[in-house]
């Protein structure tokens, strides 16, 4: 038996899990409920992101790591639901989506 390469994905999954646990609930309130309740307008939020590199880096982290968290956990959820066919293809699809999403986020935020 060989030592697995799973640590690559598991470490990203864990990092994403930590980031998601700490940051998503509050961020969700800012993007979802503050505009709804009138505490913030879409325009203000737009300018907040547009003006600050710090906010852009924050958003990059909040996009990239949770995507890997999703890819890894979803891969195992699908297996746990009993859909075990094409495991390699599934892995390529899910991790691939996370990689593409991360690259998109980087390109968009650098150019923005």
């Amino acid at each position: 038996m060989a030592r697995s390469k799973e640590p690559i994905w598991w470490s990203m999954f864990s990092a994403g899990g930590v980031i998601a646990a700490f940051l998503i609930p509050a961020t969700l309130l800012i993007t979802g409920f503050a505009p709804l309740a009138g505490y913030i307008t879409a325009e203000q939020l737009h300018d907040l992101i547009d003006r600050s590199w710090l906010v852009k880096i924050y958003l990059f982290i909040l996009i990239a790591l949770p995507l890997f968290h999703w890819a890894h956990r979803f891969r195992f959820t699908v297996a746990d639901l009993g859909l075990r066919g094409g495991a390699a293809l599934q892995a390529i699809l899910f991790y691939g989506a996370a990689i593409v999403g991360t690259i998109c986020a980087a390109v968009i935020l650098i150019r923005a």
Partner: peptide
């Protein structure tokens, strides 16, 4: 994880509109 990933996707769509 579907909602964690979904929210990441939402943020990505949002920043794409900056």
């Amino acid at each position: 994880c579907v909602f964690v990933g979904g929210y990441a996707l939402f943020l990505l769509m949002l920043v794409a509109r900056i």
